[in-house]
Design a protein around this nucleic acid. Structure first.
Lengths: 340, 340
DNA sequence: TTGTAAGCGTTATCAA
DNA sequence: TTGATAACGCTTACAA
């Protein structure tokens, strides 16, 4: 076994010559082994192993008008939420012959559109995009992508192809309902970035308040700046200055919630009595915090794994009926909202 | 301008026909425009734009024995540290004609070796790997990779090619020295995962204690489990049970530090008086915490950007002399170690 | 079951 | 400055 000749570039030709067959036969053993006789199949396998042959993905893509690439286009690199999704994606791709190509749109729809164009140019095996807020042109591209397309992070009624996620609107309503059920009567809202997904959460918050006949007053603090723990502190400070009657907050993510908690402690507000706090996503730290912080659990890893699986199923022709997979969410109550 | 015919696959042939030149000329306009006459160059540019031509990376790679891919192999997807590095990598790649191919080794050297082999098979424009702890075979591959190779996250004396990072050993010594300078006499150590980089930090911690004639006692708590905030709490609990004399801790990352802080609060230990805490990496939340937590700042984004820049420089022949770029680190003192 | 040969969309060498 | 044309390594009819 001589695996070190990567640079020498062992080609299919070398394998074929070594065994004494044609390259076509070698190609077949790789793609549909069942049509080649066991005897030569084994010899070829042995040769591949001993020569350290690795197929050239470029040649393969060029010849087959189909690459093994699963394209993934996400809004942000640094957001933990997407890190978990990627974790799921990579673990589902592992062991397949596919590879992942990642692109970041930086929350810019035009940049996303462009990435879609570039990715599609490689005739990918499949494409994973986030959400439903693509440009018109991007939508058109995705509807006739010529490969499986999966939208993640959301559910909705009219997917380009398949979709796996949850309803941000419903999740926000449920979190707000939870606060109200715990006896909080003046809940506020902390939001950052305010991309479409965040907007839908705000929408849910507002509708739930309305359903309970609660005025929102000045208790909605938002900014388009990117989220951070520090920003959570700032937003809570603003909120309490403007609307001191606030008795609870729903934060659009856990970073904000953590920052808000620190700020509350600085202001000697007792949690959960003076102020209830609920985050979003249920990142690992929420359970470890002192006090522990309630949050809305979302299934990010599962979203990534599920998206890849949907693509693999489509590719193998074993796709399920349902176009939309709703992974749901869970309200995790902890001490920050009078839980245990 | 008709940009929507991605699926129809506009090829170089189409562009050439549209202008009435040969594909060779179109190819030249793309690769070295200076050798083609301004007149046809402009016509070709216009045709490319109006037809929405995008080059096929597979064909390009196949014909040129060089892809535009910059391969990046990191140990972990979900670790925030690497998210920041990726952020830097992507932002440096943006605007170039390169694309990024990412692979995760899950901290397994053999898996890393395999990824290196697979990546190298695509004749990448460059390769970025983490650290210095590759297998023998991987080292051999990297030394004769035939493309620029950059090791990130560490410094060292014998890079395969180039290297950009900092000394984990020095950083840990400095952090430990800081604790001692603040008057702590019984500092402990909290470590998770205990991969080679973490080991070097432990090494630095121990050497610094020794230099001050301080016994380490039972104050070193480590586990091979992956790091988390919750784990930080557990490790501090273990530490305080086994070595109640501990008056400060150095944590190998900020998650552990945060978890340790929460646990200290649960135990009514006053920070920084009863217990000093210093983290590692200086993630954003450290400044926002209550109390704010001291940490060792590292330059992760810069590492990613710098690594890409080193590759681009090598590719353009403008590489600098120095093989190793030391980005250093900074001790950021905050209230958790008697700072302001 | 296996082999032959024509592409796939570029690049690069050589002539013109 | 431009155009033919032979690779590049593989897939895939079509023949055998």
């Amino acid at each position: 076994m001589n695996k070190n000749n990567v640079n020498k570039s062992v080609t299919m030709r070398d394998v074929a010559d070594h065994v004494g067959v044609s390259v076509a036969t070698v190609s077949r053993t790789l793609r549909n082994p069942e049509v080649v006789s066991p005897a030569v199949r084994d010899k070829i396998a042995a040769a591949i192993e001993s020569l350290g042959y690795l197929p050239d993905p470029a040649a393969r893509a060029l010849a087959s008008t189909r690459s093994d690439i699963i394209g993934v286009i996400l809004p942000s690199v640094s957001n933990n939420v997407f890190a978990d999704v990627m974790d799921g994606i990579y673990s589902a791709v592992e062991g397949t012959h596919h590879s992942v190509q990642l692109g970041y749109s930086r929350y810019a729809p035009l940049s996303e559109e462009n990435l879609i164009r570039v990715f599609l140019r490689q005739r990918p095996a499949g494409l994973i995009v986030a959400g439903v807020d693509q440009t018109e042109a991007a939508q058109a591209l995705l509807r006739e992508a010529g490969c499986p397309v999966v939208q993640i992070m959301e559910t909705g009624s009219n997917p380009y192809d398949r979709m796996i996620g949850f309803s941000h609107y419903d999740a926000a309503r449920a979190a707000t309902a939870h606060l109200i059920a715990q006896g909080y009567r003046r809940p506020g809202f902390l939001g950052a970035r305010m991309d479409p997904r965040t907007q839908r959460r705000l929408h849910g918050f507002r509708d739930e308040l309305r359903a309970h006949g609660i005025e929102e007053g000045k208790r909605i603090q938002t900014t388009t700046r990117p989220s951070s723990v520090t920003l959570g502190s700032h937003l809570l400070a603003q909120l309490m200055d403007l609307a001191p009657e606030t008795d609870a907050i729903f934060c659009i993510n856990d970073d904000l919630a953590l920052g808000a908690m620190f700020e509350a402690q600085r202001r000697n507000l007792r949690i959960p009595d003076d102020l209830g706090i609920c985050g979003f996503n249920d990142m690992e730290m929420m359970a470890a915090a002192e006090p522990s912080i309630s949050s809305v659990r979302t299934f990010r890893r599962e979203m990534g794994e599920g998206a890849v699986q949907l693509i693999l199923d489509a590719l193998s022709g074993s796709a399920a009926q349902e176009k939309v997979v709703d992974l749901g969410f869970q309200i995790i109550q902890r001490r920050s909202t009078r839980g245990r």
